[in-house]
Lab assay of single mutants.
Amino acid sequence: MQRVNMIMAESPGLITICLLGYLLSAECTVFLDHENANKILNRPKRYNSGKLEEFVQGNLERECMEEKCSFEEAREVFENTERTTEFWKQYVDGDQCESNPCLNGGSCKDDINSYECWCPFGFEGKNCELDVTCNIKNGRCEQFCKNSADNKVVCSCTEGYRLAENQKSCEPAVPFPCGRVSVSQTSKLTRAETVFPDVDYVNSTEAETILDNITQSTQSFNDFTRVVGGEDAKPGQFPWQVVLNGKVDAFCGGSIVNEKWIVTAAHCVETGVKITVVAGEHNIEETEHTEQKRNVIRIIPHHNYNAAINKYNHDIALLELDEPLVLNSYVTPICIADKEYTNIFLKFGSGYVSGWGRVFHKGRSALVLQYLRVPLVDRATCLRSTKFTIYNNMFCAGFHEGGRDSCQGDSGGPHVTEVEGTSFLTGIISWGEECAMKGKYGIYTKVSRYVNWIKEKTKLT
């Protein structure tokens, strides 16, 4: 034993070699072989497995989906700052455009905790909710729209109204504003409101030439003092309507412009014939205590009207009353817009006519005020429907199939267009061939041609 100890002390290297040989010859039971080890760690190889990531292109799944990435790591994937920024906006807080917040056709661009709407022409605001041009839906104005110097929408209202708090709607500024039905039992019968379409306001006024200088022999019209197929109006439903009495009662109609003036057809009036105007009328054979009678003290036909040349060209006249009318729910003026808007309103496509005229061709006159909704007829169809001249200051309205029309005794009465609950004068009943005849239409004086003249002559002093 002493000898062994001496050998170990003198030859430590020998001992180490012996131990190493023993270990190498022993069977290893701690580690699995290569094949079995792979069965336990069965993990798919990654895209760049075996390579240094710093030297390969980034992978979106590896960089940002398996674990949260930084902007720089995302930049490695896209290799483009702009594309990385677009991805980053949604990656950080989701897609803010998912709810489609942009209105009126706006395009949404996502941002971090926010979004941006790219608005089409005519709109602005956070969600493109603000109209900035009158060309689109009248700028959301209830009545009139004008573009300011910086191309912003400025709404306005006709006389007797003021802008509401929203700067879009119009509200009454006087007790009985024009064009409004205020009798409670008839307010439910107000005709369907007309909503502004998209309009090209630059070209809204037709490029028409008034044929002022045409000389033409007097034409022989049949029954051209021209509501057939209409309905009984309720008291106060058309408070701007008046009836004219002269040699015979209810020979023509008219509309209240203001307390002192009536507008009617020029062919209705004769110099030297006494005319009485009755406002607030409903049943011409009954006294309903809503009527107001006034005498006409002055007749002003349009300066281009000449019955000797043509009885229905420039067929418009103004009547001055001896005493002002007292405005109330049964006696209310009709609204008159400017030339541009009167023309736009007419193009809405349908209007209402009213009167006490004959209820059928050569038949009896109506006792109760009649009204009828009539569609506008395109000019080409209008011209083809008659052998008589249709001037540019006239328009056609009615039904091709016949059966409904204005008729004798309705002449001078109103053709009105309702705009968001307020009625505007767009025409004056003038003439036609018979009444409600198939293929024939009622012919009306186009008020847009005469609004400046009306307003100039009827100013209240």
Rank of each mutant, 00 (worst) to 15 (best):
R62D: 05
G236F: 05
T386K: 08
Q143V: 02
S385E: 06
E142P: 03
T84E: 08
I210F: 09
Y450V: 01
N393Q: 05
L376R: 05
N452Y: 07
R75D: 15
K260W: 07
Y352N: 06
A307V: 08
L367V: 09
P333T: 03
C407K: 04
Q237E: 05
N113D: 14
D198L: 07
C170M: 00
K109W: 04
K339F: 09
N113F: 04
E208V: 07
G236S: 05
A265H: 02
H400L: 13
I15M: 10
K126M: 06
V195C: 06
G413E: 02
T29I: 14
L163P: 04
I7E: 11
L41V: 14
A26Q: 02
V227W: 12
V242R: 00
R384Q: 15
D223F: 10
E159L: 06
T225M: 07
F196T: 08
Q216C: 06
E61N: 10
V374F: 02
C252E: 00
D338P: 13
L369V: 07
A279P: 00
S423Q: 07
V183L: 08
E98V: 10
E285N: 06
N135Q: 14
S99W: 05
V195P: 10
W431T: 08
E67Y: 06
A173P: 01
I336R: 01
I136M: 13
K362T: 09
N313S: 09
A173E: 09
C145S: 03
S182F: 08
T461D: 15
L163H: 01
G357K: 14
K293I: 06
T225F: 07
V263N: 01
K446S: 08
N295S: 13
L327W: 12
D338Q: 05
E288Y: 04
L383M: 07
K137T: 06
E420K: 05
G413V: 07
C117K: 00
D315G: 02
P324Q: 04
S423G: 09
G427H: 01
S220Q: 10
V278K: 06
W261F: 07
F238D: 02
N127R: 11
L14F: 13
F424I: 00
L425P: 00
D410S: 08
Q237N: 08
N304Y: 11
Y305S: 02
L321H: 00
A37M: 12
K68Q: 15
A380W: 13
S329M: 09
A207D: 08
G253R: 10
S423Y: 15
C97G: 00
K446Q: 05
E285K: 10
A308M: 10
K146L: 11
E142V: 05
G363T: 11
K137F: 09
R162N: 11
E67V: 06
T422P: 00
C108A: 00
T287G: 10
Y201L: 08
V377N: 02
V359C: 07
D223I: 11
N5A: 15
Y201D: 10
D93Q: 10
Y22A: 11
R404L: 15
I443S: 03
Q370R: 14
L425Y: 00
T276C: 04
Q143W: 00
C178S: 01
T85G: 10
L163K: 04
N213D: 06
Q90I: 10
G58D: 14
E286M: 11
D93T: 15
G125H: 01
T84R: 07
T426Y: 00
D249H: 09
Y341S: 10
C145K: 02
I334H: 01
T190C: 05
